[in-house]
């Protein structure tokens, strides 16, 4: 009926349109999801800093550099001073550290590109999670193995709530490398063994009770009494909140 050429044109055209439509659909449907678009994001940083070297091999603990994490909402990337604690003596001439030295001299902070970021209408608080003895690995993955840090978890609302509803499934217990305070003494001989440093202790999950208005999803767990003034006491993790206003305010 149609010429062979026309027939061919319809077939090829159909295939092309089909392919384009599929790609547009895939990108549109999945591409905006955090677990596709955000996970694996690793921007180029001003200094070729490696966690694999510093945290993995040299075993500098996370909190040495990310010091505020236990007491503040944010766990800022380290100041230039922190790098210079060592790099005044170690590799003091290295050209790769030129940016760090310049920043140290001028007092102008290094502009590290931000990787993990929840939208500004969400208020995430590190200290609450760290005090409940949750390891960094639960949310950031094995950072000490990453030459370049990339986002490891999607940081979606569903991800937060999954863990808040059943923390025992998602929490990775504190590992010595993270410097999370658990209130327990380690044996010094164990610490000298490299494998021990990266082994999590079993997650400490406590019993949680719904408070005041259970329909809004807020829970409480036992808070240990303050024994020594000035030392924050770790607690067992309970169920996290599901109440909209704890994260969106």
């Amino acid at each position: 009926m149609f010429s062979r050429r026309f027939d061919m044109g319809v077939k090829v055209g159909g295939a092309v349109i089909g392919a384009v439509a599929t790609i547009v659909f895939l990108v549109g449907f999945f591409g905006v999801r955090n677990d596709v678009a955000d996970v694996g994001y690793r921007p180029v940083q001003p200094v070729p800093f490696s966690h694999k070297l510093h945290a993995g091999e040299l075993q500098i603990q996370c909190q040495y550099c990310h010091a505020g994490v236990e007491i503040s909402a944010h766990s800022p990337v380290p100041t230039t001073q922190t790098c210079m604690n060592c790099h005044t003596a170690v590799k003091a001439e290295s050209p790769r550290l030129q940016v760090v030295r310049d920043s140290y001299e001028s007092g102008q902070p290094i502009e590290w590109a931000r990787i993990h970021k929840v939208p500004d209408y969400v208020h995430f608080n590190h200290s609450r999670h760290i005090r409940a003895q949750i390891d960094c690995k639960s949310c950031h993955g094995p950072v000490e193995q990453m030459g370049v840090v990339s986002q490891f978890k999607p940081l979606t609302m569903g991800w937060c709530l999954d863990c808040h509803r059943s923390p025992e499934k998602f929490i990775i217990g504190a590992r010595p490398i993270s410097g999370v305070f658990t209130g327990k003494l380690h044996n010094v001989k164990d610490l000298l063994d490299s494998a021990y440093i990266f082994t999590p202790i079993p997650a400490q999950v406590g019993v949680s009770r719904p408070i005041t208005a259970p329909q809004f999803g807020s829970y409480e767990t036992d808070i240990p009494p303050l024994t020594v003034a000035g030392i924050p006491h770790p607690k067992k993790a309970g169920r996290g909140p599901e109440n909209c206003s704890t994260c969106h305010y």
């Binding site: 040299l58 075993q59 500098i60 603990q61 909190q63 040495y64 060592c86 010595p176 410097g179 305070f181 658990t182 209130g183 327990k184 003494l185 380690h186 610490l191 024994t227 020594v228 030392i231």
Partner: peptide, 16 residues
Amino acid sequence: FVMARGQNRFNVFCAA
């Protein structure tokens, strides 16, 4: 408890 805190902070800031 105090020892554990001391150990924890020592490991973080001094052990490196």
